[in-house]
């Protein structure tokens, strides 16, 4: 069973600061970590590998410093890491990213399962996984909280829903996204850390992927356009409604209706 895990480097969410002028995140000197949901994805891949053999490859798209999160997963026991890094990819939205990752899958070729975290904690879109599946025509099971059964050719998994869970079965290859309920990620081992320290991931640019259409990526190739980002101003303006309880309630209902809230 060869498994590909998509991972992302994100800012440690406890430290996010925004530039009040531009409304964008201040990235300088901010601690970056492996997206927490991706850690569950890596752990699940390692557990499947321990049971069934094969190989776990992690892939991340980002600047050269994203090698650090690849090294962390190597420390956990991942076999190989690939960094997708190219100036042409700068400014890619989720669709352009998904297109890129689908091209990565085409180049890797020999895989039976793709795992992602349910979403990244920075953008919180939860779009890239499903979009990759769409690009590649892979069946997808989102929000997997437990893999009940897996063979070389099929998977049966529990999908976490708000009111319970669904059990879905799919042929492989497929793509799944996982939620935190699925496992408890291991620590990096000492031997793993030593190996990771010296580990140099493969670096692929767009030229390394045959048939890659550069027009579909980067700021220009992205269908999403960001017009403005800003921090909403906090407004503490309130209005006191006078009168006895019945009267005040009637006034309040009137105001709510006036504002088209109900």
């Amino acid at each position: 069973m060869n498994i590909v895990v998509f991972i992302k480097q994100v800012v440690a969410t406890t430290n996010v600061k925004l530039d009040p002028e531009t409304g964008t995140m201040i990235r300088d000197g901010v601690e970056c970590i492996l997206n927490p949901f991706d850690e569950y994805a890596v752990e699940e891949a390692l557990r499947i590998k321990e049971k069934m053999g094969g190989k776990v490859t992690v892939v991340t798209m980002g600047p050269p410093q994203a090698k650090e999160i690849i090294r962390k997963t190597i420390g956990m026991g991942v076999d190989e890491g690939i960094l997708i890094s190219d100036r042409a990819l700068a400014g890619s939205d989720t669709w352009a990213t998904a297109y890129t990752l689908s091209q990565v899958l085409k180049k890797i070729g020999d895989y039976q399962l793709v795992i992602t975290g349910k979403q990244a904690v920075d953008g919180d879109t939860a779009q890239v996984g499903p979009e990759v599946a769409a690009c590649e025509g892979l069946p997808m099971i989102a929000w997997v909280r437990k893999i009940e059964e897996i063979s070389e050719t099929s998977i049966r998994a529990e999908r976490l829903m708000e009111d319970g869970y669904d059990v879905l079965e799919s042929p492989l290859p497929a793509l799944i996204s996982v939620v935190k309920e699925i496992n408890e990620p291991r620590l990096e081992s000492l031997r793993g850390k030593m190996k990771a320290k010296k580990y140099e991931p493969k670096v692929w640019g767009v030229a390394d992927m045959p048939g890659f259409d550069v027009a579909q990526v980067g700021l220009k190739g992205s269908p999403t356009k960001v017009f403005k980002t800003f921090t909403p101003k906090r407004q503490y303006k309130g209005e006191m409604i006078a009168g006895d309880a019945a009267q005040a309630a009637a006034t309040l209902v009137g105001k709510i209706k006036e504002m088209n809230i109900v």
Partner: peptide
């Protein structure tokens, strides 16, 4: 470096587990 790794790993294990 190796000894520092031992300290870091033990600390992480102690705090998280």
């Amino acid at each position: 470096e190796e000894q520092q790794m031992i300290v870091d790993t033990a600390r992480e294990l102690a705090l998280t587990k």
